[in-house]
């Protein structure tokens, strides 16, 4: 008997819950042969607003967790993803990957999450410094999380690009609002299910699907978003940069082959950090000079 396959309706992920878009709109991305592969929420600016509110609410407690604990939680994401590998492989195939490509992408995503889990309690030691100054001060620089990072997921991959930008941003205590790839959005929401069933607190990652041209300017101009990371934006580049100016958002664009094992590293973490330098007065005893 022929069976009509159920086309899944994917919802969005805000504050640890899976609501529908407040606009009630949806779209159906298609595969190479023109068949619909899922019903996705066509999110609106109000969804962006709600996601940012949720991210701000989650920021305090997430950034105050110990670095080691954040590492444990990020590692837990990798564990949960490992357990649902097959689902992601099938979903990637649905979106046009071959089986071999899909397997490679999922495994690399898991490994990359483990990689950043390891960095959680180490980046600060590597990036911090004691600075030489010519006065009686102990002068040191440490890293602090920035706040809310807006992430536009790379458009050409469904899973690995998203993981490559999102995980380094949150591993240092930032919270994130992510706009999924417009044409390949399936894995983003399934990944939200992974996040939700791991120990990541609600609101740390918020994921929206929809039209990039509609959502990106809202995220870029939002005064409560502190950084914006993406691949090169092409025709949207200038408009986005202008929108990001008002609150001096950090804006980074990366052009990398996300399927390469080299497309990961400490600088993906450090770009979303603030450096804080402290001048601490010290006594200069008996004319001795300090080594720092």
């Amino acid at each position: 008997m022929n069976r009509v396959e159920i086309l899944k309706t994917y919802k969005i992920y805000i504050g640890g819950a899976f609501p529908r878009t407040e606009s009630g709109r949806y779209y159906t991305p298609v595969n190479k042969t023109g068949e619909g592969i899922g019903n996705m929420c066509l999110s609106s600016r109000k969804d962006v607003r709600n996601a940012v509110t949720a991210a701000r609410k989650a920021f305090g407690s997430w950034s105050e967790r110990s670095a080691f604990n954040r590492g444990q939680i990020i590692y837990r994401i990798a564990e949960m993803l490992e357990g649902r590998k097959e689902q992601f492989i099938l979903e990637l195939q649905k979106q046009g990957s071959t089986k071999a490509e899909a397997e490679k992408e999922v495994i690399l995503a898991i490994d990359r999450i483990v990689y950043y889990a390891g960095w959680c309690d180490k980046y600060n030691q590597v990036l911090s410094a004691v600075n030489p100054v010519s006065s009686s001060h102990f002068n040191f620089t440490t890293c602090e999380s920035m706040g809310i990072v807006g992430v536009l997921a790379p458009q050409t991959t469904s899973l690995i690009g998203l993981v490559s930008l999102l995980i380094p941003a949150i591993c240092s205590g930032n919270t994130a609002v992510l706009i999924a790839s417009e044409k390949l959005p399936l894995c983003a929401i399934t990944f939200a299910e992974v996040l939700n069933s791991s120990d990541v607190p609600g609101g740390v990652v918020n994921i929206l699907t929809g039209n990039t041209e509609e959502l990106l300017p809202v995220l870029a101009s939002h005064m409560d978003v502190n950084a914006l990371i993406s691949e090169s934006l092409g025709s949207l580049e200038i408009e986005t940069a202008k929108a990001a100016v008002d609150n001096l958002k950090r804006k980074f664009t990366y052009n990398a082959d996300w399927s390469s094992e080299k497309s990961q590293g400490l600088y993906y973490i450090s770009d979303c950090l603030e450096l804080k330098t402290t001048w601490h007065p010290i006594e200069n005893i008996g004319g001795t000079t300090s080594s720092y």
Binding site: V218, H222, M223, D224, D246, N247
Partner: peptide
């Protein structure tokens, strides 16, 4: 302003 605000300001 047409732009969502932040309590920081």
């Amino acid at each position: 302003t047409g732009v969502y605000q932040s309590s920081d300001y």
